[in-house]
Amino acid sequence: MRGQVELDRLADYAAGLLDGTPDGDQVAHLIETDPGWARAYSDLLTADRLVSADLAALGADPEPMPADVMARLTDRLDAEAAADRTVVSLAARRRRKRWTTVAAAAAGVAVCGALGVPVLRSAFDGGSTFPTMSRDSAGEGQAGAPAAPAPPAPAESGLIVLASGRNYPRDTPWASIAGEPQAGTADELARKDATSIPPDLVRLYGAGARQDCLTAIITVYGGRPHSVDYARFEGAPALMVVLVDERAKPVRMVAAGPGCGLGGDPDVRHTVPIA
């Protein structure tokens, strides 16, 4: 055994982990009889103290979580919270749903489920970063209810969030989509749930990222975001945003790409005014 210092074994011995074992006795014997082991043991004891001091010094340096990492984490948890909610079953209601019904929700009436898809109402106006879902349909049948004045801010206040995953072609009759019954589409949409969000749009499912996106959009187009749909435009992942005027009347549709909100860019793929 003479002449071969085994570092791990010596480290275990120096830490007292071999005390009372035959292996410990053997290492002790080597240290007593082999100058190489004796020197290595002595040096290791000194070095161990130096390393311990270095590691403790490293630990004394504060290492706070960077703000951008925390923001990413919060966005991801927001998305998780949103996707986690129970999908509202609208199979029984789908014939009656209108975007105008959804408008009533934006005006402060608790409405959800307009399109037979997961409908989530942002809790941003409540100051929480975790969206909550409105499970009720108290506003059902309230199409045509008088629109309340638009809340002043922030961008997501009262926002209706849909996750249909559907594909909107360029020639979609936007006025119809925004204000007319969804005949013929509800069955398809009812099969979808929050998991149908295109992967490229997951970032935008976080309330923080979504608000950045909506802020970028209204900076360019004005109006107020009324509803968003995590969907596709011409086959590409897109956040379909309906903007309304101060009377909650739909005035514009914007298809925003996955980069929406990054650096203040709305990443608009398509937009049309709604007459």
Partner: peptide, 22 residues
């Protein structure tokens, strides 16, 4: 716990070599 102690002791020994203390 013994495994934690062993990993720490061995890790410090390797660090000692890498840091030039050994």
């Amino acid at each position: 716990e013994g495994t934690v102690k062993s990993r720490c002791a061995r890790g410090r020994a390797r660090l000692a070599v890498q840091l030039g203390y050994l």
